[in-house]
Nucleic acid binder design. Structure first.
Length: 208
DNA sequence: ATCCCGAGGG
DNA sequence: CCCTCTGGAT
């Protein structure tokens, strides 16, 4: 079997049981949770959103929310001033431009405040089940280390990864790479000794 | 100190 | 490319 495909199969097996901590049932909730997730742990996002979605169950309520209220509600997630302002602006645009429905294309999603390609593709993949491959810092780092990608540009990484990974696996591979990056292939001190693809990986930790 | 499933602006 | 935004866990 091809070396890259062997890597994919091992990651598939290793992370078969991991489910995304940020998967919410509806697109609105997933969008909000993903915006909040920047520079914040998934655990805290889940705590904050639990209360947030009671107060603002849909874009309709969030669009009319008081800025200071939203700021206080999400304060523990960090970057709260930007996020609060963006969330409200987001909801307003969803109401005014999209009739209260979260849009289904990357072009439309990225017109929303605080929504870049990563967040847009998360929504496409995990709320709408469309073929998308969101690239975050973990995906970027791990892809480069295992030799799938050779660039710091997320767009280039996406392009290279998509050639190696079958379309049906794109969204799943996003999670495999993220969890591998979080648990093993860490930015600072990667745990190469615990890596399931060590023998296939061109990268070796200098501090190993 | 360092990191957490980024985006926007210069 | 760089910088800023940010609280909380470790």
């Amino acid at each position: 079997m091809d070396k890259n495909q062997e890597i994919i199969e091992r990651l598939r097996k290793e992370y078969a049981d991991v489910d995304s901590a940020l998967e919410y049932e509806n697109p609105y909730e997933l969008l909000v949770a993903t915006i909040l997730a920047a520079q914040c742990t998934d655990v805290r996002v889940n705590i904050v959103t639990k209360d947030l979605f009671k107060r603002y169950p849909s874009p309709k309520e969030l669009a009319q929310a008081e800025l200071s209220e939203v700021e206080n509600a999400i304060k523990t997630c960090g970057l709260y001033k930007n996020k609060a302002k963006n969330l409200i602006a987001c909801a307003q645009r969803i109401m005014e431009a999209y009739g209260g429905i979260v849009p289904h294309t990357e072009e439309e999603l990225t017109t929303l405040a605080g929504v870049g390609r990563k967040t847009a593709n998360v929504v496409l993949a995990f709320a709408f089940g469309l073929p998308a491959f969101p690239v975050d810092t973990h995906v970027k780092r791990v892809s480069n280390r295992i030799g799938f990608a050779h660039s710091n540009d997320p767009n280039k990484v996406e392009e290279e990864d998509k050639k190696i990974i079958k379309k049906e696996d794109w969204s799943k591979a996003h999670h495999w790479l993220i969890w591998h990056g979080r648990r093993v292939c860490k930015a600072q001190k990667p745990l190469c000794g615990k890596c399931c693809i060590l023998d296939l990986c061109p990268y070796t930790d200098k501090n190993l």
